[in-house]
Design a binder for these strands. Sequence first.
DNA 1: TTAGGGTTAG
Length: 500
Amino acid sequence: MRYENIKPDNTTLLMILRASSAVVSSCKIGELFHCQILKLGFGFDLFLQTGLLDFYSKVGDLGSAKLLFDEMSERDVVACNELFDRMGSLRNTVTWNTMISGYVQQKEFGRAISAFQLMQVEKMKPTVETMVSLLSACAHLGALDMGNWIHAYIRRKNIKSDVYLGNALVDMYCKCGCLESALDVFHGLSSKNVFCWSSIIVGLGMHGYGKEAIDAFVEMTKDGMKPDRVIFIGLLSGCSHSGLVSEGRHYFSQMLGVYGVQPGIEHYGCMVDLLGRYGFLAEALELIWSMPMTPNAVVWGSLLRACQIHKDTKLSEQVTKHLLELDPFDGGNYVFLSNIYASVNRWNDVETCRKVMADRGICKIPGCSSIEVGNVVHEFLAGDASHPQFIQITKFLDEVVKKLRRMGHKPDMEYVLHDINEEEKEASIRYHSEKIAVAFGLMSTPEGKSIRVVKNLRACGDCHSFMKLISKLFDRLIIVRDRNRFHHFRDGSCSCKDYW
DNA sequence: TTAGGGTTAG
């Protein structure tokens, strides 16, 4: 259009922006576009500004989005001073919603919630779109208290529920460990689409209810709903969490013929996970070689995890080679290999692994656990003692460990990295972030209250048995969401039946 | 103009 020397109007620009935000992943183009708008001297109206704001949010340039958003606020003040008070605000509900959803999409969940609080300070009325974004933030954080508060707020303010909001609630309750509430909301929905079904199927699966996930799938198809690829990911991963190998095989084989869904690399990944985790390592490897597409890091990663569970050092070395070829800078691969060497006492190889990591400047992601107490999310990062009550927590934890030892618990140090003495090894696992978070929960919540912890990585074997004992010792329900599933610890045992 | 579900891994 510029070549024709015809000046586009605002509507055209808005259309271009929307199209770009759907396909463009580079922030540079947004900036260029922003400059062009200014250079060509457009009337920068609210729609265009919102379009640009949405663009910045979607491509992940939150800095520019925030700058623009704040700028809009200043203009608002000027406009209100100059004009009559009936003048519409330049920063309206839609721009707030765009900003909040931008934070959620960029995984800045805390900021999304803060933005909502600011929105309330400015007396801006939230809408159903605001609520959906916020619930998604709570789901990611595992912030149940906040999620409950939002649910109550929706009821109090009579915010009209739709299928998006219903789904967001179901997903939030599942990911915050409240399967009962999720099911309540789900069954109460007046209409359900494929998103709602997938939320509940995935939720059942990640809580260890594989059979119920299959039942939901069957019910869904009876309702005339056509399953999509995400539904099958949920179904197969649900089978995997519960060790339902033959059921998983059955549905995988029926995907294309019966349901018309072409198995993608994700579904092969689920199958490798299902077979490998159960111990069928050779079959899992065979499946990888027979795949119609090139296996990716997720597929090899699933097999590597299976090798770790079933202690197949030889195969795991082969698998790691593939992984390191695919991504030589992924720290996780080195950590995995190093753990496997450590478990069979090959300390020289452990050292080599660590040296390669150091030489290439690769770090491992530190463990991080969070717990919500009194409407505040407390975060505990491995090796970080900055929490104001850190000393009291560790003292409390030491006492607990002593008690557990008297009960006969021996620390499981299979995957401690270093070739160090037993005492040092014990110290290195005693303060794992999830233990600190649970200890803090025990100290700061009333007796009998369940404790919910969210962890960014998988729980180690020692933390898992520790939680089982703690649930009995303190008579508390402890719910831990780890990287990919839930563990409900009650009266000395775990809902995963130690299959995870 | 704004909103929702997904496989491995430190």
